[in-house]
């Protein structure tokens, strides 16, 4: 086996090594787990809602970063996968409430059915768009994914039956196989659990043979081809996995908000996810979590401080890009370069 194919994850072999490279995210997850307690202590239930948003967006940013930071695919359509997941849950609940079947299938409010379906449909969407988009690369890939994002946006706007531009309110009582998970604290821990699971999942994937080939492809596609490996299949698989996890986050979003709208699918949201991943730090699986939390908090706090919140927000973004080339994760020490993300 030539060099780049080697299993390059010494951290995984020793517990101390693992701790050394992942302590910031362990601390962060620990802090996130305390949010409901703090919220109860200061009698401010909104805190949980705010952090639920941060945690769900963090799942998307982590999933996006799998293709962005490790596969050099700058996708501008992750809001579309998110929206697909969210709309699948909302539309199924709509038909359950309404009683009318969706074509021949009955609607459902059981998330044990709706969520896997949402993930499946998002994965299928990623497969279809990925096959076409991955013919291109670089800036062309950014733009073709943006085009698909816009198409889906206008598709949801056109769904007048499901609210069109006004969005769709979920009126049915969502449950998970009969369990009520829409209680705020329960739901928050569910979302946090999904985030932790995604981190473990993507962390392992990045260091697996699959992940190594993906990273090698991002660095030098020709060398991978020379080894007799078809990089396209690996890139497509990565894109589908990323889209599926994003669809899962979307399904969670619909469950938590009880409301979906085309603005969840807008290209600006896609750009937000990219900003979260890059600001957080693309070199590590967990970097984007910091990006997502910081951006969600800034967006909530700055506007209540000043009407001209875009000015400080823009300046913060510029300063981070200019001075922290590896994103916020670099605050905890530099990572080894892992790919040529975005080049």
């Amino acid at each position: 086996m030539p060099e780049p194919m080697k299993h390059s994850a010494p951290e995984a072999s020793s517990f101390a090594g693992a701790l050394k490279s992942t302590w910031p995210i362990l601390v962060a997850l620990g802090a996130l787990a305390l949010v409901p307690t703090i919220s109860a202590a200061i009698d401010n239930p909104f805190l949980i809602r705010l952090f639920t948003r941060a945690v769900i967006f963090a799942i998307v940013a982590v999933a996006l970063n799998f293709v962005l930071g490790f596969g050099a695919m700058v996708s501008m359509m992750h809001a579309a996968f998110f929206g697909i997941g969210a709309y699948v849950v909302a539309i199924l609940a709509f038909h359950d409430f309404d009683g009318a079947p969706l074509w021949i299938f009955p609607g459902t409010s059981n998330l044990a059915v709706a969520i896997p379906l949402a993930v499946l449909v998002a994965a299928f969407g990623a497969l279809l768009t990925g096959v076409v988009s991955l013919r291109t690369s670089g800036a062309y890939f950014i733009m073709i994914t943006l085009a698909f994002n816009q198409m889906l946006f206008y598709f949801f706007v056109a769904l007048q039956k499901y609210g069109g531009d006004d969005g769709l309110q979920i009126l049915a009582d969502l449950n998970f196989a009969g369990l009520n998970i829409s209680k705020r604290v329960t739901f928050y821990y569910v979302a946090l659990g999904v985030l932790a699971a995604s981190l473990i999942f993507f962390g392992r994937l990045v260091n697996s043979r699959f992940g190594v080939i993906l990273r090698a492809t991002a660095q030098n596609e020709r060398r991978v081809v020379a080894l007799g490996i078809s990089p396209l299949r690996y890139k497509l698989a990565a894109f589908v996995i990323s889209g599926a996890v994003t669809g899962l986050a979307g399904a969670l979003w619909a469950t938590g908000q009880q409301f979906v709208s085309p603005s969840d699918v807008s290209w600006v949201r896609s750009a937000d996810y990219v900003v979260m991943a890059v600001l957080g730090g693309m070199a590590r699986t967990w970097g984007p979590v910091f990006g997502a939390v910081v951006i969600v908090l800034l967006e909530a706090l700055l506007p209540s401080a000043t009407q001209f919140w875009q000015l400080p927000f823009g300046i913060i973004v510029i300063l981070i890009v200019v001075y922290l080339q590896g994103g916020l994760a670099d605050l905890f020490g530099r990572a080894r370069p892992s790919s040529g993300g975005g080049r």
Binding site: F46, R49, Q257, S261, P303
Partner: peptide, 21 residues
């Protein structure tokens, strides 16, 4: 006072904040 930025999800968040905080 709160700013919804003409975005339904932002408006929703501001409303939640006002109701709960």
């Amino acid at each position: 006072y709160g700013d919804d930025q003409v975005k339904p999800d932002v408006g929703r968040q501001v409303v939640d904040k006002m109701l709960e905080s």
